[in-house]
Each structure stands twice: as C-alpha cells, then as structure tokens.
C-alpha cells in the first residue's frame, strides 16, 4: 500500500484525483489559516466568558438556566453530524464520482445540524422565559455571544451545505466543487471542536 503524503490538513483526495488533488493544496491551506483566525475569535469569547462568569448581577445563573439533557442531545447530534460528513468525504474520495450517495450523506448531515440548531434555539427560548436574556447581565451577554456565535457558524454551514448540494447538481463533481467539499468538511469538524470547548467550559463547568 503506498501512502501518499498529505498535501494539506484534513482528508486528502489523493493522487488518483489528479488536478483536483494538487490544486486543493494552496486553497485548503488558506482555508485552514482562516480557521486558525476564527479560532482566535472564539478564544477571545471563551476568555471573556470565563472572565465574566461571576457577572450575573443578581440575575439567574447557570444552575437555574441550563438544561444539560438538551445539551447532551445537542452534543450527540453534532458529533453524529461530524461523522456523517466524514462518510460524505469518503464517498467523495473513493466513490468514483457518483453523486447520489454523497448528496444523501450531505443531506443527513444538514438534517442533524438543523436539529442541533432547533434544540439550541429552544434552549434560548426557555432561558429567556426564565429571565435569562442577554440584556439581563454581563454573564448572560457573554453566554449568548459565545454560544450564539457558534450557532451562527452552524447556520452558515447549513447554508453552505445547501449551496454545495446545488453546485454538485449543476456543476457536477468538478475540481472546484471537490475542493470546496473538503473545505466544508474542515469547517464542519472544526465547529464540533469548538462545541467540545463550549459544552465543557460553559455548560459542564457551569453547573459542576
């Protein structure tokens, strides 16, 4: 088995994909740099969240507001969606250009992402009912900004999956579409990484 060295982070298409493989190198590297920049953005919000952890200003705190069952479900959904995106990427790499399976896995991933968002918004809603709105306290502001930014990223990811589905349909699996699917994969896995930080630092540490 020859193991061709990877050209960029994430799943590599591999030499059999020819131009699509080599052309991905700088593009995916660039996207990776972008993700690192995004990581710093999240890092600052994390640090702000920790620094404002005691700024509840007499309002409701984590114990009153967090619903860990829902968080556990969200975590499961997102983890599963990371996996299903992995299956999609494998079909992209090994599926000999057939589109149907790939599109099905993408749709499943999107459905899981949508379900995640649904739970998150329901949580926001019920928190708000209990007085947990961002204008209530500095801590809640930090909470909504951090978790909301992640949710916003998921939303954009869903939009991106939608656009990619159309592109696969219209343009077929050409060089560019393949590269973009690889980028989307990095993005989606990256969001799961951020979520690990969120459920550990915000939710679990919050009620521990």
């Amino acid at each position: 088995m020859t193991q061709d060295t990877p050209l960029h982070p994430g799943l590599n298409l591999g030499a059999p994909h020819g131009e699509a493989h080599t052309r991905s190198e700088p593009v995916i590297f660039g996207f990776w740099v972008f993700l690192m920049s995004d990581l710093i953005l999240f890092g600052i919000l994390f640090a702000t969240y920790v620094a404002m952890r005691n700024g509840t200003a007499g309002g409701p705190g984590p114990l009153e507001l967090f619903d860990l069952t829902s968080v556990a479900i969200q975590t499961g959904l997102l983890l599963l969606s990371s996996l299903t995106y992995g299956f999609a990427s494998l079909l992209l790499k090994h599926g000999n250009g057939q589109r149907r399976g790939l599109m099905i896995w993408l749709i499943i991933t999107a459905a899981l992402g949508l379900a995640f968002l649904g739970f998150e918004l329901t949580d926001f809603h019920s928190m708000a009912q209990d007085g947990g709105v961002p204008s209530r306290s500095g801590w809640l502001s930090a909470y909504y900004a951090l978790v909301g930014l992640h949710g916003l990223h998921i939303t954009l990811g869903l939009l991106w999956i939608g656009v990619m589905l159309v592109q696969i349909g219209v343009l077929g699996l050409n060089c560019r579409v393949k590269t973009r699917l690889l980028m989307l994969g990095l993005y989606w896995h990256f969001l799961d990484l951020v979520w690990i930080g969120i459920f550990s630092i915000v939710f679990l540490a919050g009620v521990a």
Binding site: T48, M52, S135, G138, S141
Partner: peptide, 11 residues
C-alpha cells in the same frame, strides 16, 4: 448587551 457597560455585571 452588557459586555462593557457600567451596570449589570459589565466590565
């Protein structure tokens, strides 16, 4: 929001 306000836990 109250990230940087004087009141309500802003900093």
């Amino acid at each position: 929001f109250h990230f940087f306000t004087n009141d309500l836990g802003g900093n």
